[in-house]
Amino acid sequence: MSRTGLILGAVLTLLFTGAAILSLVWVPYDIEAMRIAERMQPPGAAHPLGTDHFGRDILSMIMVGARTSIAVALVAVGIGMGLGVPLGLLAAARRGGWLDEIIMRGNDLIFAFPSLLIAVMITAVFGAGAVNAIIAIGIFNIPVFARLARGAALSLWTRDFVLAARVAGKGRLRISAEHILPNLANLLIVQGTIQFSLGILAEAGLSYVGLGAQPPIPSWGRMLADSQTMISMAPHMALFPGLAILLTVLGLNLMGDGLRDWLDPRLRRDAR
């Protein structure tokens, strides 16, 4: 079961990343050219997913939109991992010390702020746009990774192989890098996939309220916002971008769950 999920998830993820990469070199139609004559056409031979209210090809826009979504979410995960994991490792290496206290209190503080609202504030105050969206989403990834890394690292620190490394004269930072981090890799991959999918959802939400990537860069969220007033006349305009988000997020989640089962030897043994 989990194997099928993993494969399905990987296929969906590849499909959308593939589309995003392909859009760099080729799209069926130019997405900046407006053809009012062809506006709001339902799916058909010329436009497989129909056209929008400016006559732009929805398939092409979804392909380019995938690029925006994936780029924003990926960089946001990068920020979260890049800052959160070292902080978490540091906190665990100095468990109970003042550094640990500060890092964890800081985390709790960020968690106490309503994430979506702060993302809205950041983008609204510093200007709407992809970069600010990345920062807004990325900030809330930091405590997620810090907490995860700290928790897992703490349990690794109690293991005898860490003690053996200390008997071999190694310091805390070296042990963190050589022994703790490699054993966190699986966990981080899995959480990374999940945060990636949450990032896609968050980016869609922000651009839906007009705070994500700005025109003319297409984004799935704004395509949905544009379609809202025309939903009864041209439901396909709302359907396909939404499906794109749904399938991408679903793919990433399935892949994350599948990876977890596949990478975790404990679960693998149970499944047998």
Partner: peptide, 18 residues
Amino acid sequence: TQLGVAIPNFWFAMLMVL
């Protein structure tokens, strides 16, 4: 639940409105 987690809630809301 896998679908429920993946669905953007504002899109689901739009579909429900429709």
